[in-house]
């Protein structure tokens, strides 16, 4: 008996099947990665805890009313001014800060002056970046949009200061350092992590919020 060749399988419809699957995945999936402004909420305090007494000059007060108007340090301001005002406030360095008890040398010592600040050293503004508190007060009917803009501007002010400090200390901006650290997921670079931590301690992010 003569051996017959098996007939060739028709693969013409293979493309159709693949297209069908492709379209299914195009429709049911999304590509966007969620991103946003990260904040840490304060821990819940028992009712008996007395609020600490803080000097008024160490508080930078941003109030947003129900018409989305901004009042910063009792003056009417616009959104564009927030960043510069926040930079001036945090970077003022007019007095002694809290003791930094993180990197050995300063441990247990009294508070020191801010040697890395480039501000005006104004007596009526903040003492030290680690004492400078940014307070955001909002009304219940304040729009979320303006609230996010203000939060973003405050973050931008801090990023600016951290970048400037990191550039001076390590010749690399803070943003670049964080990015590099993210890329080093497999072999983390401990010295880089310490540098980032140090910058964060030198310009900490202290924000309080109040909603009426």
């Amino acid at each position: 008996m003569a051996r017959r060749d098996t007939p060739e399988i028709n693969a013409g419809s293979m493309a159709d099947i693949a297209f069908l699957l492709l379209i299914f995945f195009l429709v049911t999936t999304t590509m966007d990665i969620d991103a946003g402004i990260s904040r840490r909420l304060p821990e819940k305090q028992p009712d008996t805890v007395e609020p600490p007494i803080i000097k008024k000059r160490n508080i930078f007060e941003i109030s947003i009313n129900r018409n989305d108007d901004l009042l910063i340090e009792d003056e009417y301001r616009t959104v564009d001014e927030v960043k510069q005002l926040a930079i001036d406030f945090i970077d003022n360095g007019g007095g002694l800060g809290n003791a930094i008890a993180l990197f050995g040398e300063d441990e247990g010592k009294e508070g020191t002056e801010c040697t890395w600040c480039e501000g005006k050293k104004d007596e009526s503004s903040s003492d030290h970046p680690n004492k400078a508190i940014i307070s955001i007060k909002t009304d219940r009917s304040t729009t979320y949009g303006i609230y996010i803009i203000v939060q973003n501007e405050v973050s931008a002010a801090l990023t600016f200061l951290r970048n400037r400090l990191a550039k001076k200390e390590y010749g690399q901006t803070y943003t670049e350092m964080v990015k590099e650290d993210k890329n080093n997921k497999i072999n983390p670079d401990q010295s880089l992590k310490d540098k980032i931590k140090k910058i964060k301690v030198m310009y900490p992010e202290i924000i309080t919020e109040q909603n009426n």
Partner: peptide, 23 residues
Amino acid sequence: TVGTISDIKKELREINALKVTYA
């Protein structure tokens, strides 16, 4: 409005879910 957001944040504080990101 910020009021709604702050209500949610209050709840999150109660149950110690402190990490928040505003998308």
